[in-house]
Amino acid sequence: MADTRKNVLEVKNLHTCFFMDDGVVKSVDGVDFTLKEGSTLGIVGESGSGKSVTSLSIMGLLTGTTGKVTEGEILLDGKDIAHISNEEKRRLRGGQISMIFQEPMTSLNPVMKIGKQLTECILQHEKISKKEAWQKAEDMLRKTGVPRVERMMNEYPFQLSGGQRQRVMIAMALVCRPRILIADEPTTALDVTIQAQILDLMNNLKKEIGTSILFITHDLGVVAEVCDEVAVMYCGRVVEKADVYSLFENPSHPYTRGLLGSIPKLGEEADELEVIPGNVPNPKYMPKGCKFAPRCSMATEKCQEEEPGFFDLGGGHTCRCWLCEKGGGEK
């Protein structure tokens, strides 16, 4: 079955580097992926894998840091957005692309009332009166299922609970009906019961508004629940890409398998968890060949020397590992 949905976002060969006093750190090192209209793409990886920097690059939020997109393209509906002026970027943010952050308390303005924060974004992007904007904000907030909306519009963030704050963040991100929503670990700081509420809400709003979601997380359980497609990142690169069913059914990269093995699963008895030995390498001293080779139990000499490219496993499932060269291999 050919997928005829349009590509909303295409990231091609993205490189993002941080220029530090003592050298250059390549945080994102040649990342490619596409996000289709109305679907959810999950980006999974551990800390330091470059998943958050990828999202900041797409949002154009690296100005003011030492980071810079050095190579590659980010296409939104076919138009490049990586190399445009700050003024143009600002018009996109909040309108076309918006973002939900991990820590809802630190990403809301603590001295601004909820209503003001919500309408601020609408007034930036749409030519409507303050009153209409207020009404629109209220409607959006109601959709996220918070109680006593009218009163909350006049409250400050500290008066809300963590789950409510995350709902406000979601309302703020979706109020202008963006093409793309980037959710960077939106539920990591929340309890499981609240996490379930928020994931449910995001799924419903995605259907209602037709936004495509880029979902960044380290939790494979959450990925299985909300994503259509998944890209697994390690050390600034995508190592495996597949739709969610084939990824969990047939994880092909040793890193993906290691990740899946190291989470304890409910209702499964195991004396010992599978372990990926060692730590993520220091970005200043990256291994020469495959970045995962030093921690990989199946690494050969070839892995130490030469970095693998992507091998096609069929059905859109690709994997960056020499082991896939023969088994299932290139077609």
Partner: peptide, 25 residues
């Protein structure tokens, strides 16, 4: 029951009857 049903399971084929709790603690 609610707590257990809220835990995301790393298996996309698992369909669950989720008990979603209302409100906060």
């Amino acid at each position: 029951k609610a707590l257990l049903s809220a835990v995301p399971v790393p298996d996309p084929t698992a369909k669950k009857d989720r008990v979603i709790l209302e409100g906060n603690i």
